[in-house]
Design a protein around this nucleic acid. Structure first.
Length: 589
RNA sequence: GCGCCCGUAGCUCAUCUGGAUAGAGCAUCGGCCUUCUAAGCCGAGGGUAGGGGGUUCGAGUCCCUCCGGGCGCGCCA
């Protein structure tokens, strides 16, 4: 019997012996084994001879033949042959392939678990949406990617902290609080023109309604008090820069007025809107199978003085200068396109300043690696953040930014609007409700994160039964059904005699199971959970093919148990992989 | 204008850090349910990998250039 995990490394060891004998000088050449797509090319293949051709200045075919000749005899390898331009193809002994089945059944939910991360602490910050409205499908993509990636890295041996950065300190929150108050006034019959650049969504009215129900007219003020003396609004149909500036100025003046009129009640308004939206956001994400260990408040960075400390530190290190009354960080010294303001002329810190403080805090918490998952529109932001870290004397290499490309929605073949403020967007909650959580998570997982995503709503909604997620879940359900009809104790299958499994379909499926840890390793290395999704599709395909070709519940108990063991192992790997992607595996469909 | 990302079958996407004849799903066409779930299986057609050049044993993958699309270039967040 072969140790499951070791088949590949044992094969590498054999090749290394051959290499040491053929080309002692090049014995350190790394040996890469790949699983050929074409079954005719065996179970493993190496391009070692082609790699050596360059160094040894010899014909790769000759090198390959020598390597095969020098390969030590082993029960592991049934056949090693030279093919193509110099590949060496290995066909394993059946027992070496079916060994994976026993391995899966012995390890269960831990099959595929790795120690790549060596228990290092890694922080993944994702979603971090402004709590100013419902999450939309773009956030959904970041959420699905981040959650799957976090699960994946934890499975691969890192100690993962999942974190959501709450932007609770900026102007956007003020605008939300103002929007809520204006809707509240509206409910009390006070007619104030609702600014076009305030938050228009129905959820704002909902919050206002709750507030009116709970506090009656406590925050009532007259329209005259609210509006008198404010700068006017331009015509609604104007979209030039001047008009835009006028609208922003009007909005800011309204905020100032609201703060003056409400006094201490303003912060209640602010807090209420924040906690409502945050609770909604958390609920939405949890229903989506996305959980966070830490909800980190931007405001706390100011309250604890960390923002000031971070800026002071930059100043002390000589990386700041004053120009036009503002404090600038000399980020061009660290590869950025231009210098950036950290403290405005009016004394307020910029978002960049609090972000520097936030990253300083991340470093001070002692993570070995930090991953930020950002929307692709933030790519220009990376050099300045890394620059600031370097300027603070920190190792910027610890920080890795994974960009998630935009999800562009299509409805009836038309681009759907995605603006939060206009309130016209498809929410994540709507999407989950119409497509289902499983299909939703898998739909997102099925795309490489740095690839633009055309999300066709009509397709996603209408094709729920054709979504590939069901293909995989169906394989799982089929195994459950067969095992139920068999009625035996599944745990006994781990001891089944697998010697009778020798058909190409069975061995292909067993091979696929053995590949799972390699898929985990590659996906973790590339921060690419989509590789798991594609692997699972292939695994399910191997299973369905076999299922349609052979019967499991046969009379011969030895053959029956062997096949059931294979099926049970396939079910286990499907469950392990789907679990990482946050997709459930029903036992019947 | 400058910077980053992208361009693969009619559509949506893979391609294991440069490997063998570029693969799936959907859609189209043809077969398979008296046998453990047909949400399945088997088969067929469908490609100048945006165009062109370069690097080498070998390029969808790396470099250059052009075309096309997305995003960014605030004392916004």
């Amino acid at each position: 019997m072969f140790m499951t995990q070791d088949v590949k490394t044992q094969l590498v060891a054999l090749i290394q012996q051959a290499l040491a004998s053929v080309a002692p000088a090049a014995s350190a050449t790394p040996i890469l084994l790949e699983r050929p797509r074409d079954a005719a090319h065996g179970d493993f293949a190496t391009n070692l001879a082609m790699q050596l051709a360059r160094v040894l200045k010899k014909n790769p075919l000759d090198i390959a033949r020598q390597l095969v000749n020098e390969l030590p005899v082993s029960a592991l390898v049934r056949k090693a042959e030279v093919a193509g331009a110099g590949f060496i193809n290995f066909t394993l002994d059946s027992a070496a392939k079916t060994a994976a089945i026993a391995g899966v059944l012995a390890l269960g939910a831990d099959f595929g678990r790795l120690v790549l991360g060596g228990g290092q602490k890694i922080q993944i910050e994702f979603v971090s949406a402004n709590p100013t409205g419902p999450l939309h499908v773009g956030h959904g993509r970041g959420a699905a990617y981040g959650a799957s990636l976090a699960n994946l890295l934890a499975f691969a041996g890192w100690e993962v902290t999942r974190e959501f950065y709450v932007n609770d300190a900026g102007r956007q929150m003020d605008i939300l609080a103002l929007s809520t108050w204006l809707r509240y006034l509206e409910l009390n019959g006070v007619v104030v023109a609702f600014p076009p650049n305030a938050y228009q969504g129905a959820y704002v009215r909902d919050m206002a309604g709750q507030m009116a129900a709970a506090h009656g007219g406590k925050y009532f003020r007259s329209a005259e008090a609210v509006e008198s003396g404010l700068p006017g609004l331009p015509d609604a149909d104007r979209s030039d820069d001047e008009a835009k500036n006028q609208r922003e100025a009007h909005l800011d003046a309204l905020i100032v007025r609201a703060k003056a009129l409400l006094g201490p009640d303003w912060s209640y308004m602010h807090q209420h809107a924040l906690s409502e939206q945050l609770a909604d956001c958390r609920d939405d994400l949890e229903s989506f199978g996305v959980r966070f260990d830490v909800w980190f408040s931007e405001q706390a960075l100011f309250d604890t003085g960390l923002v000031a400390r971070a800026v002071d530190l930059l100043e002390k290190n000589g990386h700041l200068y004053v120009q036009n009354g503002a404090k600038w960080f000399k980020s061009t010294a660290f590869g950025d396109e231009k210098d950036r303001v950290v403290q405005r002329e009016n004394g307020l810190y910029t978002y960049f300043a609090s972000d520097i403080a936030y990253h300083l805090n991340k470093y001070e918490r002692g993570f070995d690696k930090i991953i930020n998952i950002w929307g692709a529109d933030h790519h220009g932001y990376i050099p300045r953040v890394k620059g600031a870290l370097t300027a603070l004397g920190l190792d910027a290499e610890k920080l890795q930014v994974a960009l998630v490309q935009f999800a562009v929605l299509y409805r009836n073949g038309q681009k759907a609007p995605m603006s939060t403020r206009s309130g016209e967007f498809v929410t994540l909650r709507e999407l989950r409700g119409e497509v289902g959580n499983d299909a939703c998570r898998f739909f997102y997982a099925l795309r490489k994160s740095d690839q633009h995503l055309d999300f066709d709503l009509d397709l996603a909604k209408s094709q729920t039964n054709e979504n590939p997620v069901y293909y995989i879940q169906y394989a799982h359900a089929r195994v459950c059904s067969v095992l139920t009809q068999w009625g035996g104790e599944v745990s006994t299958l781990a001891r089944a005699d697998l010697g009778c499994l020798d058909s190409p379909r069975e061995l292909a499926l067993a091979n696929r199971l053995a590949e799972f840890p390699e898929v985990i390793a590659a996906a973790a290395r590339d921060l690419a959970p989509h590789q798991i999704a594609f692997y699972l599709k292939e695994l399910a395909a191997d299973f369905h093919t076999w299922y349609n070709a052979e019967r499991m519940l046969v009379d011969d108990p030895v053959l029956r148990d062997a096949r059931l063991a294979l099926a049970a192992a396939a079910r286990q790997v499907i469950a392990n992989g789907m679990g990482l992607l946050g997709v459930s595996c029903p036992s019947s469909m």
